[in-house]
Simulated assay, not measured.
Amino acid sequence: MTTCLLRLSAIVLGVAVSGPGLCDAPGTTTQTLPDNAESRFQFLDANRDGVLSKYEYDSEVAFETADSDHNMLISAQELQEILGPPVQGVPTAADRLIVADLDSDGELDDGELRRALEMRFGWLDRNSDGNLDLDEMKSGFGVRVRP
Rank of each mutant, 00 (worst) to 15 (best):
114 R>K: 15
1 M>D: 12
50 G>E: 04
35 D>W: 10
140 G>C: 09
77 Q>G: 09
1 M>N: 10
41 F>R: 00
92 T>I: 10
68 S>W: 10
138 K>M: 07
13 L>H: 02
56 E>G: 03
84 G>L: 09
9 S>L: 15
21 G>C: 03
86 P>G: 01
43 F>A: 15
28 T>D: 09
33 L>C: 13
53 S>Y: 02
128 S>A: 14
131 N>M: 12
29 T>D: 12
13 L>D: 01
91 P>L: 02
12 V>S: 04
142 G>L: 07
62 A>D: 02
100 A>Y: 01
24 D>M: 09
11 I>E: 09
41 F>C: 03
138 K>Y: 01
6 L>W: 14
74 I>L: 14
41 F>A: 04
127 N>R: 11
25 A>L: 13
61 V>S: 15
25 A>Q: 11
142 G>R: 02
129 D>M: 08
92 T>R: 03
14 G>R: 00
132 L>M: 08
124 L>M: 13
4 C>P: 09
30 T>Y: 01
2 T>V: 12
20 P>A: 08
52 L>E: 05
83 L>C: 06
128 S>H: 15
115 R>Q: 14
95 D>T: 02
122 G>A: 12
118 E>Y: 07
77 Q>D: 15
38 E>W: 03
43 F>H: 14
18 S>H: 09
42 Q>T: 14
11 I>Y: 08
